[in-house]
Simulated assay, not measured.
Amino acid sequence: MKKYLSTFLVLSFLALNAQQTANRFFYELTFKPKKEKPETEKVMTSLDITKDKSIYQDFTVPAQDSIIKMEIEAMEKSGTWKDMSKSIKMPKFSFKIYKTYPDMTVSYMDRISTKLFKYDDPVTFNWKILPDKEKIGAYNTQKATTEFGGRKWTAWFSTELPFQDGPYKFHGLPGLIVKVEDDGKNYSWTLQGNKNVENWEEFSFAEKANTKYGMSNTAVATTKEKFTKSYENFKADPLAEARPYMTPEFLNRTMPGSSKTFGEMMKEQEKLLKDFFGSNNNPIEIPDTKKKK
Rank of each mutant, 00 (worst) to 15 (best):
M1G: 12
K3C: 05
Y4T: 11
L5Q: 13
L5S: 11
L5V: 08
T7C: 07
F8L: 12
L11R: 13
A15M: 10
L16A: 15
R24F: 06
F26N: 06
F26S: 08
L29Y: 05
T30S: 12
F31R: 05
K32E: 07
P33S: 08
K37G: 00
K37T: 05
K37L: 13
T40N: 04
I49H: 04
D52L: 07
K53H: 14
S54A: 15
Q57Y: 10
Q57H: 10
T60W: 07
Q64T: 05
Q64G: 01
D65G: 04
D65V: 02
I67V: 09
I68W: 02
I68H: 03
K69I: 02
E73F: 00
M75H: 01
E76T: 00
E76S: 00
K77H: 05
D83W: 11
S85K: 12
K86V: 07
I88Q: 09
K89Q: 14
K92S: 11
S94H: 08
K96R: 15
I97E: 04
Y98A: 10
M109I: 10
D110T: 09
I112W: 07
S113F: 06
L116N: 12
P122C: 07
K128G: 04
K128F: 02
D132A: 14
Y139C: 09
K152F: 06
S158H: 03
T159W: 02
L161P: 01
P162L: 09
G166M: 01
K169A: 01
H171M: 00
G172V: 00
L173M: 05
V178M: 05
D182N: 07
D183I: 05
G184D: 11
K185G: 06
Y187N: 10
S188A: 14
G193F: 03
N194P: 00
E198C: 02
N199H: 14
E202S: 11
E207F: 04
K208F: 00
K212N: 04
K212Y: 04
G214W: 08
A219L: 13
A219E: 11
A219T: 10
T223A: 08
E225I: 11
T228S: 13
K229D: 15
S230R: 13
S230M: 14
Y231G: 04
E232R: 11
F234N: 06
K235C: 01
L239S: 13
E241H: 12
R243Q: 14
P244Q: 10
M246P: 00
M246T: 06
S259C: 02
S259N: 15
K271V: 12
L273T: 06
F276R: 10
F277A: 03
G278F: 02
I286Q: 14
P287I: 13
D288G: 10
K290Q: 09
K293T: 12
